[in-house]
């Protein structure tokens, strides 16, 4: 546990020193959401209907922007090879990196999403569900994205590539989240969609670090 925390602390320090990179993601999220009312017109009732979908789609896209960096800098300077060689389980190292990725991209997006929801005139009853789906969904994106980041390591075009291979796989998160948000806006029970999101998070927190670690071992030799 101590080693795990040390690793998380190291990665957080790295992000803190290059804080610009984390801000860029948040900034992209805000700008992308802002485009929608300008593109489809400012009608409040239309925006209210679309608000959940708009916020979630933009959250997915902003996560894609930052995912290719999860292992990249450690891969470039060789510390990833060292991490693979240490006796400490690579799966936990990957889990720590995904956690840091979530903490520096998914979590800020979660924090600012109610503000943007207000600007999109989201139904007041849906705010809690929005936060719950964000809390369950964004870590799953970081975990699944960890596999994508491991897969494209060392390839050309890694940034675009990761979106192409990971976006189809995280479609269920988008579907269940938006379904839950829309249902709560209409006062319908959301527990089934939220439970499915929770199940996805639990499954991916077990399988994704394992798969990503296996990929890293295979690809880096």
């Amino acid at each position: 546990m101590k080693k795990f925390l040390a690793l998380v602390q190291r990665d957080l320090t790295l992000v803190y020193r290059n804080a610009n990179d984390a801000w860029v993601v948040l900034f992209f999220f805000v700008i992308a959401v802002t485009l929608f009312p300008l593109g489809i017109g400012p009608d409040p009732s239309v925006l209210q209907q679309l608000s959940g979908g708009i916020i979630w789609i933009c959250a997915l896209l902003s996560a894609m922007l930052s995912l290719d960096g999860v292992f990249q800098s450690d891969f470039d300077d060789g510390s990833l090879d060292q991490m693979i060689l240490t006796s400490y389980p690579l799966e936990l190292i990957v889990l720590g990196k995904c956690f840091v990725h979530w903490l520096t991209t998914g979590f800020p997006i979660l924090l600012i999403s109610p503000v943007l929801a207000t600007m999109l005139n989201m139904n007041l009853d849906a705010y809690t569900t929005l936060l719950i789906t964000m809390l369950l969904g964004t870590p799953t994106i970081s975990l699944m994205g960890g596999i994508g980041a491991a897969l494209v390591l060392g390839s050309r075009l890694s940034g675009v590539l990761i979106s192409l291979i990971i976006l189809p796989l995280i479609i269920p998160i988008l579907i269940f989240s938006v379904a839950a948000i829309n249902a709560s806006g209409e006062g319908i029970d959301t527990s089934s969609a939220v439970s499915l999101l929770g199940a996805l998070l639990i499954i991916s927190s077990v399988f994704c670090p394992w798969t990503a670690a296996a990929t890293l071992r295979h690809l880096t030799n």
Partner: peptide, 25 residues
């Protein structure tokens, strides 16, 4: 989309062996 993703990934590496492994996963 998964088929297309596979086809893009398998050709995205300078080392074809790496592309095969990544695409297989």
């Amino acid at each position: 989309f998964l088929y297309l993703g596979y086809m893009v990934l398998v050709n995205a590496f300078d080392d074809p062996e790496k592309g095969s492994k990544a695409a297989a996963v």
